[in-house]
């Protein structure tokens, strides 16, 4: 299909752009170091004495992503606008959707790669015990979907500005909200004075609430739909913002 081949062409270019700068390698190394450090040192992997990754490893992901994903997404549109290549891209015989989706997919694949490179941790648990690998796989899937949601939010902030740093900061703030809405200390504070329905509404917007099921190995379609709808909504908003700039 024509649309799909345009999306592929754009995604290919975007992925190439990641690996033509040292940023991609730096990102992957930082992600792996953080994962290792938090799992084995801070997360108390050895002390827990269980062959499970749920807490020591995946618990940290919403927080790692808070800084790492906006760093991956910040250049997507800000750089196009700063250099002016957006004028080339959006006058090619493609629709803006194809460009938006192509760019998003490239970055999402990049995050998938970073995530996949944490496999030595999985090998380690399997060596030390006999974990439920189905649960681990579900948690990986959830983690990747969550990264996609963060990334789509970063697409919005990247389209809002020509400055990558501004995009980064704004997107960290947005993503922080997505975490805190379901972060246990915040939820406890909130349930102290708010009605239960309000607490539920707020926590239902949180990535933590929806990531929880995946970590337990439960694939709930509502959780999948939650992440996918954040992605779709954010990409749609990105399109609206880009159109707004051009309309002047």
């Amino acid at each position: 299909m024509n649309a799909w081949s345009n999306i592929k062409t754009i995604a290919k270019r975007e992925l190439g752009a990641y690996f033509s700068s040292p940023l991609a390698y730096v990102f992957i190394v930082i992600f792996l170091l953080l994962s290792g450090f938090f799992t084995f040192m801070v997360g108390g992997f050895f002390e827990i004495g269980q062959a499970s990754l749920a807490h020591p490893f995946f618990d940290w992901h919403p927080w790692f992503y808070l800084f790492l994903v906006p760093a991956v997404g910040m250049r997507l549109w800000a750089e196009e606008r700063r250099v002016g290549t957006i004028e080339l891209l959006l006058t090619m015989p493609i629709t803006p959707w194809q460009a938006i989706v192509g760019k998003f997919l490239a970055s999402w694949l990049f995050l998938a790669l970073a995530l996949a490179l944490t496999f030595p941790i999985v090998i380690t648990v399997n060596y030390l015990g006999s974990p439920d690998n189905g649960v681990i796989l579900a948690a990986y899937l959830g983690s990747w979907l969550m990264a996609g949601a963060y990334l789509a939010v970063s697409c919005i902030t990247s389209a809002m500005t020509r400055t990558q740093v501004v995009s980064f900061i704004v997107s960290v703030v947005f993503c922080l909200f997505l975490i805190l809405a379901g972060f246990p200390p915040v939820v406890r504070l909130l349930s102290g004075w708010a009605q239960p329905w309000l607490v539920d509404t707020v926590t239902s917007f949180s990535v933590i609430t929806h990531f929880d099921g995946f970590q337990k190995g439960v694939l709930d379609s509502r959780d999948v739909i939650f992440f996918l709808s954040i992605i779709v909504f954010s990409l749609f908003t990105t399109g609206v913002i880009l159109r707004g700039h051009r309309a002047g």
């Binding site: 270019r13 752009a17 033509s20 250099v83 002016g84 290549t85 004028e87 080339l88 006058t91």
Partner: peptide, 10 residues
């Protein structure tokens, strides 16, 4: 386009 933009990372 004006100023001949091109992808600098390619």
């Amino acid at each position: 386009p004006e100023n001949a933009p091109a992808y600098t990372d390619m």
